[in-house]
Nucleic acid binder design. Structure first.
Length: 293
DNA sequence: ACAGGTCAAGGATAC
DNA sequence: GTATCCTTGACCTGT
């Protein structure tokens, strides 16, 4: 089992950089390159920090190449020598230490939108994430179901139809996560049955949004969805003020982590910790929970 | 140096 | 139909 955290490492001094469209228009592709190089150096620094703290799972920020999937972007960053040199270094490093790398396109990347232009931009965004993951040897791209659009069944059907149109490289990496208001774990399983998309189980979202189905039966489907793919990927966080508070707590409570372990039984999974205190929350779990096992 | 408003995105909701 | 909120962290402008 590998534990990981998302994007930001609070222990490191440098931050990720981004820019506004206006800045890109003023300064052109060179500013994007400058920021992308900076961001990739940050990723490498995070992986090095992770290795020295025994953290072998990491989610890369979606904004590594600022405006990387924007329709106005004119720079082929995936062919740039300096970018390739850095991504190669990252890939080599993560292979050496058997790390898992993932990305999570944002809430505005929607496979089931009824709007043609929104779908087009969403697919462009998936292509951006796919290209970057290919370069660094990342394996997982997590998205949510999307909106309900007044009819959940139609929205699910649209997801399945649009999923079929994606490139095989994207399909190899795409995973569908249950969310905390619209797509329950059982909705996500419905989509899996028609599309074979592996399911990323988020236990906090499940606590916020579930129609009282027994978790054991649902998890059977979750695990089956990964059978030919790899080690399942699971998310955990604690509610800020109560168990079904959608906001994330700074850390993960020990009891929440133990209750995840108990529903997972002995299944080998990689766990992404989604807590405000990022890598510090992972260290806390390692310290508190691992010594008990 | 710092505060606070802005950006980027699409959907949901209230009016 | 329109406005506002949701969410996020860094940008960016004004002081």
């Amino acid at each position: 089992m590998r534990l990981g955290y998302a994007c930001i490492n609070l222990s490191l001094p440098t931050k990720f950089k981004t820019c506004r469209l206006a800045t890109f228009y003023q300064r052109g592709p060179s500013i994007i390159k400058e920021l992308s190089v900076h961001n990739l150096q940050n990723v490498l620094a995070a992986l090095e920090w992770n290795r020295s703290h025994n953290i072998l799972f990491y989610r890369m920020s979606t904004g590594i190449v600022p405006l990387g999937s924007h329709e106005k972007m004119t720079w082929d960053w995936w062919n740039d020598e300096d970018i390739l040199q850095l991504t190669k270094q990252i890939k080599k490093y993560k292979d050496k230490y058997n790390m898992r790398l993932s990305m999570h396109p944002g809430q505005f990347t929607l496979l089931n939108t009824p709007k043609e232009d929104v779908l087009e931009r969403s697919i462009a965004d998936l292509e951006y994430h796919d290209k970057l993951l290919q370069l660094v040897g990342g394996t997982d791209m997590i998205i949510h179901g999307g909106g309900e659009y007044g009819n959940l069944d139609l929205a699910k059907a649209r997801f399945i139809e649009n999923y079929k149109k994606l490139s095989s490289s994207i399909k190899r990496k795409l995973r569908l996560e249950n969310d905390d208001r619209t797509y329950t774990l059982s909705d996500v399983i419905d989509i899996y049955k028609e599309s074979s998309i592996p399911i990323c189980f988020d236990i906090h979202h499940h606590n916020c949004n579930n129609p009282d189905q027994p978790i054991e039966l649902l998890l059977d489907h979750v695990f089956t969805s990964w059978d030919k793919v790899g080690i399942p990927k699971v998310h955990i966080s604690s509610g800020k003020e109560h168990i079904n508070d959608r906001r994330h707590h700074d850390y993960v409570f020990e009891k929440d982590f133990l209750s995840l372990l108990s529903v997972l039984k002995d299944k080998d999974v990689d766990i992404m910790v989604e807590a405000k205190m990022k890598e510090l929350a992972v260290l806390k779990i390692q310290k508190e929970v691992y010594k008990k096992l």
